[in-house]
Amino acid sequence: AKGLPKRTPRITAPVAAPRPRTGSVDAEALRRRLGGFRRGADAGRRDVEAELAERTGGHQAPSDPAVTSEETTGGTVEEASS
């Protein structure tokens, strides 16, 4: 009488298998679609990089690995949490 009600499982009808595709794939059409996707993804990355550069005022992350080493930053997250 106390607590949450007991779960009653529902029986569902089995799902029919998907139909096999009919016809062939046009390789050139697929290549064009994937190429368009790639160009769009590249353009999106460029837009984001430009927006981030605008927000940060052109400041760039240091490319020198010695500047961002564990010794200068104080170690890794795992070390800090233990």
Rank of each mutant, 00 (worst) to 15 (best):
R31H: 09
R31C: 08
S63W: 03
E79C: 00
E49Q: 15
A29K: 14
R45M: 12
F37I: 07
A13C: 08
G23N: 12
A27L: 05
S24N: 13
E49P: 13
A17Y: 00
A50I: 09
R21C: 03
A13G: 09
T8C: 01
R33G: 09
P65F: 05
R32K: 14
G3I: 07
E28Q: 07
E78M: 13
A17C: 03
E78V: 12
P18R: 01
K6I: 09
P5T: 05
R10E: 15
P5Q: 03
D26I: 01
F37E: 14
I11R: 09
K2Q: 12
T56S: 09
R45L: 14
G57W: 03
G35C: 09
A43L: 02
L4M: 10
P5M: 08
A50Q: 11
S63D: 11
G44A: 15
E54W: 00
E79V: 05
D42H: 10
G74W: 07
G58K: 03
R55F: 04
G75I: 08
E78P: 04
A17N: 12
R45K: 15
E54R: 07
E51P: 02
A41D: 07
I11C: 02
D64H: 01
G58F: 05
E71S: 10
G74E: 07
P18Y: 00
E78N: 11
P20N: 08
G40M: 01
V77N: 10
I11Q: 11
P62G: 01
V15K: 07
R45C: 12
T12Q: 13
T68Y: 05
K2R: 10
R7I: 15
D26V: 06
A80H: 08
A53H: 07
R10S: 03
S69M: 06
T72R: 14
A66Q: 14
G3V: 11
A43W: 02
S81E: 14
G74S: 08
T56H: 05
A50M: 07
S82W: 12
S81M: 11
L52D: 06
H59P: 00
R46I: 13
P5R: 13
T73L: 12
A16S: 10
P5E: 01
D47R: 07
G36M: 08
F37D: 12
K2L: 14
A16V: 01
G58E: 05
L4N: 15
H59L: 04
V25R: 10
A80I: 10
G36T: 12
A13W: 03
R38V: 10
P14V: 02
G35K: 08
G40R: 06
V67A: 11
D42Q: 15
D64V: 00
T73V: 11
P9M: 02
G40K: 05
E28K: 04
G35A: 06
R45H: 05
D26M: 00
G57E: 00
V25A: 13
A61H: 03
E78S: 15
G23T: 05
A43V: 00
A50H: 04
A80P: 00
K6G: 12
D26K: 02
S24P: 02
A16L: 10
R31Q: 12
T8Y: 01
R33I: 04
E71Y: 04
R19C: 02
P9L: 01
R38N: 14
L4F: 04
P18G: 00
T68V: 01
A66V: 11
R10P: 04
R46G: 11
L34S: 04
R55A: 03
D47K: 11
G57P: 00
T76F: 13
P5L: 09
E78D: 15
L4W: 14
